[in-house]
């Protein structure tokens, strides 16, 4: 078995607001997906992230470190949440990624994790 990161991507800055009709629809879908992951023994960890504007970056500079306002990547798309799953191979992980993308209605990136 191997660990994979399923990350959820948002096109733009998003609000964390659970009262919108969209959030009301997606919330239960994601909940059901999480339960399915847990029942299958594929769940390792998952959570949503606060918006990218809340990010702070610490980076080495010379001998020291500097702390600056984030996010680090100046991209229009930012990671909004993630799952870490346990799957036997790429095809099984892709099947979970399909279900994740359907549940959260956003693009989901699948990436294998290093075996540490």
């Amino acid at each position: 078995m191997a660990h994979y990161l399923l990350s959820v991507w948002h096109d733009d800055e998003y609000e964390v607001d659970f009262t919108t009709p969209e959030a009301q629809r997606i919330g239960p879908q994601v909940g059901a997906f999480n339960e399915e992951l847990q029942a299958a023994g594929a769940w390792v960890f998952a959570d949503g992230l606060m918006p990218a504007s809340s990010a702070t970056v610490v980076k080495p500079q010379g001998d020291g470190l500097v702390v600056v306002d984030g996010p680090y990547a100046e991209a229009k798309e930012q990671m909004g949440g993630f799952w870490v799953i346990d799957a036997p191979d790429l095809d099984a992980a892709l099947e979970w990624a399909r279900k994740a993308a359907r549940a959260c209605e956003q693009p989901v990136e699948l990436r294998p994790m290093q075996v540490v």
């Binding site: 191979d89 790429l90 095809d91």
Partner: peptide, 8 residues
């Protein structure tokens, strides 16, 4: 990519 992803 196929190897890193454990492609079956």
């Amino acid at each position: 990519k196929l190897r890193d992803n454990h492609a079956p």
